[in-house]
Design a protein around this nucleic acid. Sequence first.
DNA 1: TCAACAGTTTAGAATAGTTATAATGTAGTT
DNA 2: AACTACATTATAACTATTCTAAACTGTTGA
Lengths: 142, 142
Amino acid sequence: MLKNVEFVDKLRSSGLRPTKQRLKICEVLFNRDKTFHFTINDLAKNISEKLNEKISLATVYNTVHAFKAKGYLKEISINSDRSYFDTNTKIHHHFFDEDTNELIDCDDDDIEKINVKKNITGKKINSVEVLIKVASDNQNQK
Amino acid sequence: MLKNVEFVDKLRSSGLRPTKQRLKICEVLFNRDKTFHFTINDLAKNISEKLNEKISLATVYNTVHAFKAKGYLKEISINSDRSYFDTNTKIHHHFFDEDTNELIDCDDDDIEKINVKKNITGKKINSVEVLIKVASDNQNQK
DNA sequence: TCAACAGTTTAGAATAGTTATAATGTAGTT
DNA sequence: AACTACATTATAACTATTCTAAACTGTTGA
């Protein structure tokens, strides 16, 4: 459980002013045990519910993008109709539950190291990430 | 190089009427050696350029979705601002070139078999796909 | 402490991609 | 040829996201 002061420092050290709104967003995003996967809408709703306060949607967008640019958040593509963000910014793999649309982080040792045998000339590999789609194990899968 | 007749059969056998527009779209999509990765917009532009004929955007959407539902096309998530489709409908991996935003199919043997060691109870794995992001191999990467 | 400035927030307008609608058109069957 | 169900189309509607411009607020330095 991080303190406000720590968020202030964190923001300041990355050149972002520690404003009321940003601190609240930090609270919601980073005061958690588990990784948080969310869409901007989820986040905005979460803020107004948890903190009983409304932050303009535009500000939520701005802040999330600022945090992404600073490397505090990572954007994830699962389906194209919505952007997901992840508080876990390391390169890592995901399970995606097609029944619930829920995204679940993999631990490093859930998946054996991936061996890429092909190279693209002049290009270097920046990331290798796996997406495992799962659904309920019975006849009527989606 | 498939003939029109083959497309007619293909459509008919999957319960889609072989209309002018659908046949033209088939031509553009499936008369290729290589896999085709595209957005709806790419496709619409491609049609009007190649065939010198305009198909209503709504029809392109309808048709692409119909083809997807029938399993002739696959939707791919790389970045969330646009939907990409792929004429290669098998489970397969991709390189994504961050410099050019180009998507490249992997051959089956470009990547060693992926060993998933974790299970989610009550869920079965539908697909395991890898996305390898690459960028030009010099100091000013994006 | 306070003025000044640059960075922030905000509501609302604007945009882009996509989907819905409803009228018109057409393939296939009889 | 006529009928019917399915398709196409233009346009309107919708949704997620970005832009804009004015008001506001941390921060800095006098």
